[in-house]
Protein backbone atom coordinates (compact mmCIF):
# COMPACT_ATOMS: atom_id res chain seq x y z
CA UNK A 1 0.00 0.00 0.00
CA UNK A 2 2.80 2.41 0.92
CA UNK A 3 4.42 1.58 -2.41
CA UNK A 4 1.33 2.65 -4.31
CA UNK A 5 1.22 5.81 -2.22
CA UNK A 6 4.83 6.87 -2.74
CA UNK A 7 4.65 6.27 -6.49
CA UNK A 8 1.41 8.22 -6.64
CA UNK A 9 2.88 11.02 -4.52
CA UNK A 10 5.91 11.33 -6.78
CA UNK A 11 3.71 11.89 -9.84
CA UNK A 12 1.59 14.45 -8.03
CA UNK A 13 4.57 16.39 -6.70
CA UNK A 14 6.22 16.55 -10.06
CA UNK A 15 3.01 17.73 -11.68
CA UNK A 16 2.34 20.54 -9.25
CA UNK A 17 5.95 21.67 -9.39
CA UNK A 18 5.80 22.25 -13.13
CA UNK A 19 3.30 25.08 -13.01
CA UNK A 20 4.32 26.43 -16.38
CA UNK A 21 3.47 23.05 -17.88
CA UNK A 22 0.03 23.03 -16.25
CA UNK A 23 -0.76 26.45 -17.62
CA UNK A 24 0.83 25.63 -20.97
CA UNK A 25 -1.37 22.56 -21.27
CA UNK A 26 -4.44 24.80 -21.00
CA UNK A 27 -3.47 26.62 -24.19
CA UNK A 28 -4.54 23.92 -26.60
CA UNK A 29 -8.00 23.29 -25.11
CA UNK A 30 -8.61 27.01 -25.01
CA UNK A 31 -7.60 27.34 -28.65
CA UNK A 32 -9.87 24.47 -29.64
CA UNK A 33 -12.77 25.89 -27.67
CA UNK A 34 -12.40 29.28 -29.28
CA UNK A 35 -11.55 28.18 -32.82
CA UNK A 36 -14.06 25.32 -33.10
CA UNK A 37 -16.61 26.71 -30.67
CA UNK A 38 -16.95 30.12 -32.25
CA UNK A 39 -15.83 29.02 -35.73
CA UNK A 40 -18.42 26.30 -36.22
CA UNK A 41 -20.94 27.61 -33.71
CA UNK A 42 -23.28 29.29 -36.14
CA UNK A 43 -23.24 26.48 -38.71
CA UNK A 44 -23.93 23.96 -35.97
CA UNK A 45 -26.83 26.03 -34.71
CA UNK A 46 -28.28 26.57 -38.18
CA UNK A 47 -28.08 22.80 -38.79
CA UNK A 48 -30.26 22.34 -35.73
CA UNK A 49 -27.56 21.06 -33.37
CA UNK A 50 -28.15 23.67 -30.69
CA UNK A 51 -25.44 25.55 -28.81
CA UNK A 52 -22.09 24.21 -30.07
CA UNK A 53 -20.10 25.26 -26.99
CA UNK A 54 -22.46 23.11 -24.89
CA UNK A 55 -21.77 20.20 -27.20
CA UNK A 56 -18.04 20.79 -27.60
CA UNK A 57 -17.00 21.42 -23.98
CA UNK A 58 -17.23 17.78 -22.78
CA UNK A 59 -15.20 16.72 -25.83
CA UNK A 60 -12.46 19.23 -25.12
CA UNK A 61 -12.36 18.34 -21.42
CA UNK A 62 -11.81 14.70 -22.38
CA UNK A 63 -9.24 15.70 -24.95
CA UNK A 64 -7.04 17.19 -22.27
CA UNK A 65 -7.62 14.16 -20.05
CA UNK A 66 -6.55 11.93 -22.94
CA UNK A 67 -3.38 13.88 -23.70
CA UNK A 68 -2.31 14.35 -20.09
CA UNK A 69 -2.98 10.71 -19.25
CA UNK A 70 -1.08 9.27 -22.21
CA UNK A 71 1.84 11.58 -21.48
CA UNK A 72 1.96 10.67 -17.79
CA UNK A 73 2.07 7.01 -18.77
CA UNK A 74 4.73 7.57 -21.39
CA UNK A 75 6.76 9.40 -18.72
CA UNK A 76 8.02 5.94 -17.90
CA UNK A 77 10.39 6.22 -20.86
CA UNK A 78 12.12 9.17 -19.21
CA UNK A 79 12.46 7.22 -15.98
CA UNK A 80 14.08 4.49 -17.97
CA UNK A 81 16.35 6.81 -19.91
CA UNK A 82 17.52 8.64 -16.81
CA UNK A 83 18.01 5.38 -14.96
CA UNK A 84 15.52 6.02 -12.19
CA UNK A 85 13.37 3.08 -13.28
CA UNK A 86 16.13 0.69 -12.18
CA UNK A 87 15.90 2.03 -8.64
CA UNK A 88 12.21 1.13 -8.60
CA UNK A 89 12.60 -2.19 -10.39
CA UNK A 90 15.16 -3.70 -7.99
CA UNK A 91 13.02 -2.86 -4.97
CA UNK A 92 11.33 -5.78 -3.20
CA UNK A 93 7.81 -4.72 -4.15
CA UNK A 94 5.38 -6.36 -6.53
CA UNK A 95 5.31 -5.09 -10.09
CA UNK A 96 1.56 -4.83 -9.83
CA UNK A 97 1.86 -2.34 -6.97
CA UNK A 98 4.30 -0.26 -9.00
CA UNK A 99 1.96 -0.37 -11.97
CA UNK A 100 -1.04 0.64 -9.86
CA UNK A 101 0.82 3.48 -8.14
CA UNK A 102 2.07 4.84 -11.40
CA UNK A 103 -1.34 4.53 -13.02
CA UNK A 104 -3.19 6.20 -10.17
CA UNK A 105 -0.62 8.99 -10.03
CA UNK A 106 -0.84 9.67 -13.76
CA UNK A 107 -4.63 9.39 -13.68
CA UNK A 108 -4.98 11.82 -10.79
CA UNK A 109 -2.87 14.35 -12.64
CA UNK A 110 -4.85 13.87 -15.86
CA UNK A 111 -8.18 14.11 -14.06
CA UNK A 112 -7.06 17.29 -12.33
CA UNK A 113 -6.03 18.77 -15.66
CA UNK A 114 -9.46 17.80 -17.01
CA UNK A 115 -11.14 19.63 -14.14
CA UNK A 116 -9.06 22.73 -14.85
CA UNK A 117 -10.29 22.63 -18.43
CA UNK A 118 -13.82 22.20 -17.12
CA UNK A 119 -13.39 25.47 -15.22
CA UNK A 120 -12.00 27.02 -18.38
CA UNK A 121 -15.06 26.00 -20.37
CA UNK A 122 -17.26 27.86 -17.87
CA UNK A 123 -15.48 31.04 -18.90
CA UNK A 124 -16.32 30.59 -22.57
CA UNK A 125 -19.98 30.07 -21.77
CA UNK A 126 -20.40 26.39 -20.99
CA UNK A 127 -23.25 25.65 -18.54
CA UNK A 128 -23.79 22.12 -17.12
CA UNK A 129 -27.48 21.34 -16.80
CA UNK A 130 -27.43 19.93 -13.30
CA UNK A 131 -24.68 20.39 -10.74
CA UNK A 132 -25.87 17.29 -8.88
CA UNK A 133 -24.51 15.24 -11.80
CA UNK A 134 -20.99 16.59 -11.27
CA UNK A 135 -19.81 13.55 -9.27
CA UNK A 136 -20.79 11.32 -12.20
CA UNK A 137 -18.83 13.60 -14.53
CA UNK A 138 -15.80 13.38 -12.25
CA UNK A 139 -16.14 9.60 -12.18
CA UNK A 140 -16.04 9.45 -15.99
CA UNK A 141 -13.11 11.83 -16.12
CA UNK A 142 -11.19 9.69 -13.65
CA UNK A 143 -12.00 6.41 -15.42
CA UNK A 144 -10.92 7.79 -18.76
CA UNK A 145 -7.76 9.09 -17.08
CA UNK A 146 -6.97 5.62 -15.73
CA UNK A 147 -7.69 4.02 -19.08
CA UNK A 148 -5.32 6.21 -21.03
CA UNK A 149 -2.60 6.30 -18.38
CA UNK A 150 -2.42 2.52 -18.50
CA UNK A 151 -2.39 2.72 -22.28
CA UNK A 152 0.55 5.13 -22.02
CA UNK A 153 2.37 2.78 -19.64
CA UNK A 154 1.72 -0.22 -21.87
CA UNK A 155 3.11 1.68 -24.86
CA UNK A 156 6.09 3.02 -22.89
CA UNK A 157 7.00 -0.48 -21.70
CA UNK A 158 7.46 -1.46 -25.31
CA UNK A 159 9.27 1.67 -26.52
CA UNK A 160 13.03 1.84 -26.15
CA UNK A 161 13.27 5.62 -26.25
CA UNK A 162 11.44 8.78 -27.27
CA UNK A 163 12.01 7.98 -30.96
CA UNK A 164 8.64 6.32 -31.28
CA UNK A 165 6.91 9.18 -29.59
CA UNK A 166 5.89 11.08 -32.72
CA UNK A 167 4.52 7.85 -34.12
CA UNK A 168 2.37 7.31 -31.04
CA UNK A 169 1.16 10.87 -31.22
CA UNK A 170 0.16 10.76 -34.89
CA UNK A 171 -1.11 7.23 -35.16
CA UNK A 172 -2.63 6.64 -31.76
CA UNK A 173 -3.44 9.71 -29.70
CA UNK A 174 -4.60 12.06 -32.46
CA UNK A 175 -6.87 9.48 -34.12
CA UNK A 176 -8.34 8.56 -30.72
CA UNK A 177 -9.23 12.20 -30.23
CA UNK A 178 -10.48 13.12 -33.71
CA UNK A 179 -12.43 9.91 -34.26
CA UNK A 180 -14.25 10.04 -30.96
CA UNK A 181 -17.13 12.38 -31.51
CA UNK A 182 -15.41 15.00 -29.40
CA UNK A 183 -16.05 17.66 -32.03
CA UNK A 184 -18.92 16.23 -34.07
CA UNK A 185 -22.19 14.47 -33.23
CA UNK A 186 -22.33 10.70 -33.66
CA UNK A 187 -25.76 10.75 -35.27
CA UNK A 188 -26.07 10.41 -39.05
CA UNK A 189 -22.44 9.44 -39.69
CA UNK A 190 -21.48 7.36 -42.76
CA UNK A 191 -21.47 3.65 -41.87
CA UNK A 192 -17.67 3.21 -41.91
CA UNK A 193 -17.18 6.26 -39.75
CA UNK A 194 -19.80 5.06 -37.33
CA UNK A 195 -17.99 1.74 -36.89
CA UNK A 196 -14.69 3.51 -36.28
CA UNK A 197 -16.14 5.87 -33.71
CA UNK A 198 -17.82 2.95 -31.99
CA UNK A 199 -14.44 1.24 -31.65
CA UNK A 200 -12.82 4.27 -30.07
CA UNK A 201 -12.85 4.02 -26.27
CA UNK A 202 -12.80 7.80 -25.90
CA UNK A 203 -16.20 7.93 -27.62
CA UNK A 204 -17.79 6.30 -24.59
CA UNK A 205 -15.94 8.53 -22.16
CA UNK A 206 -17.19 11.63 -23.94
CA UNK A 207 -20.66 10.20 -24.29
CA UNK A 208 -20.76 9.53 -20.57
CA UNK A 209 -19.55 13.03 -19.85
CA UNK A 210 -22.23 14.51 -22.13
CA UNK A 211 -24.88 12.49 -20.34
CA UNK A 212 -23.72 13.82 -17.00
CA UNK A 213 -23.06 17.41 -18.02
CA UNK A 214 -25.59 18.29 -20.73
CA UNK A 215 -28.04 15.41 -20.48
CA UNK A 216 -27.70 14.19 -24.06
CA UNK A 217 -25.81 11.29 -25.53
CA UNK A 218 -26.00 8.25 -27.71
CA UNK A 219 -25.34 5.10 -25.70
CA UNK A 220 -26.63 5.78 -22.21
CA UNK A 221 -24.69 6.11 -18.97
CA UNK A 222 -24.77 2.41 -18.10
CA UNK A 223 -23.36 1.33 -21.46
CA UNK A 224 -20.67 3.99 -21.31
CA UNK A 225 -19.66 2.92 -17.84
CA UNK A 226 -19.51 -0.77 -18.72
CA UNK A 227 -17.48 -0.19 -21.89
CA UNK A 228 -14.99 2.19 -20.25
CA UNK A 229 -14.73 -0.04 -17.19
CA UNK A 230 -13.99 -3.19 -19.17
CA UNK A 231 -11.49 -1.56 -21.52
CA UNK A 232 -9.72 -0.07 -18.51
CA UNK A 233 -9.52 -3.48 -16.87
CA UNK A 234 -8.13 -5.07 -20.03
CA UNK A 235 -5.55 -2.31 -20.49
CA UNK A 236 -4.46 -2.56 -16.87
CA UNK A 237 -3.81 -6.25 -17.36
CA UNK A 238 -1.95 -5.70 -20.65
CA UNK A 239 0.00 -2.82 -19.12
CA UNK A 240 1.03 -4.90 -16.12
CA UNK A 241 2.01 -7.75 -18.39
CA UNK A 242 4.33 -5.59 -20.50
CA UNK A 243 5.55 -3.73 -17.46
CA UNK A 244 6.59 -6.90 -15.69
CA UNK A 245 8.71 -7.86 -18.65
CA UNK A 246 10.70 -4.66 -18.78
CA UNK A 247 14.37 -5.47 -18.40
CA UNK A 248 15.58 -2.15 -17.10
Amino acid sequence: MSTVYILWLRQIKKYFRSRSRIVGALGQPLLFLVAFGFGFGSIFQRAGGGDYIQFLAPGIIMMSVLFTAVFSGIDLIWDRQFGFLKETMVAPVSRLEIMIGKTLGGATVAAFQGLLVFVLTLFVGFRPYNLLMLPVAVLFIFLVAILFTSLGIAVASKLEDMQGFQLIMNFLVMPIFFLSGAIFPLEGLPKAMEIITNLDPLTYGIDGLRHSLINTGKFGLATDLVVIGSITAVLLVIGSYFFERIQA
Binding site: R10, G83, E87, P92
Partner: peptide, 25 residues
Protein backbone atom coordinates in the same frame (compact mmCIF):
# COMPACT_ATOMS: atom_id res chain seq x y z
CA UNK B 1 22.96 -1.41 -5.14
CA UNK B 2 24.78 1.56 -6.57
CA UNK B 3 24.42 1.33 -10.32
CA UNK B 4 27.17 2.27 -12.74
CA UNK B 5 24.87 4.75 -14.46
CA UNK B 6 22.94 7.48 -12.63
CA UNK B 7 19.68 6.29 -11.11
CA UNK B 8 18.41 9.27 -9.13
CA UNK B 9 15.31 11.30 -9.85
CA UNK B 10 16.76 14.66 -10.84
CA UNK B 11 13.45 16.41 -10.29
CA UNK B 12 13.19 15.40 -6.66
CA UNK B 13 15.23 16.63 -3.72
CA UNK B 14 17.96 14.58 -2.07
CA UNK B 15 15.63 14.00 0.85
CA UNK B 16 12.76 12.90 -1.39
CA UNK B 17 15.01 10.44 -3.20
CA UNK B 18 15.94 8.94 0.15
CA UNK B 19 12.33 8.84 1.38
CA UNK B 20 11.18 7.15 -1.80
CA UNK B 21 13.77 4.45 -1.25
CA UNK B 22 12.98 4.07 2.44
CA UNK B 23 9.31 3.50 1.70
CA UNK B 24 9.92 1.04 -1.14
CA UNK B 25 12.17 -0.93 1.21
Amino acid sequence: IVFQDPSLDDDMTALENMQYHAILY
